[in-house]
Lab assay of single mutants.
Amino acid sequence: DVEPGKFYKGVVTRIEKYGAFINLNEQVRGLLRPRDMISLRLENLNVGDEIIVQAIDVRPEKREIDFKYIP
């Protein structure tokens, strides 16, 4: 289970104008929005990159997770 405030290693699987989709595993995916990136820009991410993200909002009923990147 993903818990708000905890850090997780994930893989960038898709990049859109509104953010990057990060997979923690095959069943768990969330969104990293540009506003939640500190010292990292969306255009510097590539599909396949491994990054450490912090879960900031977890909505299991909608199967949605918002992430934050903190270097």
Rank of each mutant, 00 (worst) to 15 (best):
D1K: 14
D1N: 15
D1H: 15
V2R: 02
V2S: 02
E3L: 15
E3D: 09
E3R: 13
P4H: 09
P4W: 07
K6A: 09
K6H: 12
F7E: 05
F7H: 07
F7S: 09
F7C: 08
Y8S: 00
Y8Q: 01
Y8M: 02
Y8R: 00
K9N: 09
K9S: 10
K9T: 10
K9E: 05
G10I: 02
G10F: 03
G10A: 04
V11H: 10
V11S: 07
V12M: 01
V12E: 00
V12Q: 00
V12G: 00
T13I: 07
T13K: 07
R14Y: 06
E16G: 09
Y18K: 06
G19N: 01
A20W: 02
A20D: 00
F21V: 10
F21G: 01
I22M: 02
I22A: 00
I22S: 00
I22T: 00
N23Y: 10
N23E: 12
L24I: 13
N25A: 12
E26C: 10
E26I: 13
E26A: 15
V28A: 08
V28P: 01
R29E: 10
G30M: 03
L31H: 03
L31K: 03
R33Y: 02
R33A: 04
P34T: 11
P34E: 13
R35Q: 12
R35Y: 09
R35N: 11
D36T: 03
D36Q: 07
M37Y: 03
M37A: 06
M37F: 03
I38V: 13
S39K: 12
L40I: 12
R41T: 15
R41W: 09
L42R: 03
E43W: 12
L45R: 01
L45Y: 02
N46Y: 13
V47D: 03
V47A: 05
G48C: 06
G48K: 05
G48F: 07
E50K: 14
E50P: 13
I51R: 01
I51P: 00
I51Q: 00
I52C: 10
I52D: 05
I52A: 05
V53L: 04
Q54N: 04
Q54E: 07
Q54L: 15
A55P: 05
A55F: 04
I56R: 06
I56D: 05
D57A: 15
V58D: 03
V58R: 05
V58M: 06
R59K: 07
R59W: 06
P60K: 11
E61W: 09
E61C: 06
E61I: 10
E61V: 09
E61D: 15
K62M: 12
R63V: 08
R63I: 07
R63G: 15
E64A: 07
E64T: 10
I65A: 06
I65E: 01
I65C: 04
D66L: 12
D66Q: 08
F67R: 01
F67T: 01
K68N: 04
I70S: 12
I70M: 13
P71D: 09
P71Q: 08
P71T: 08
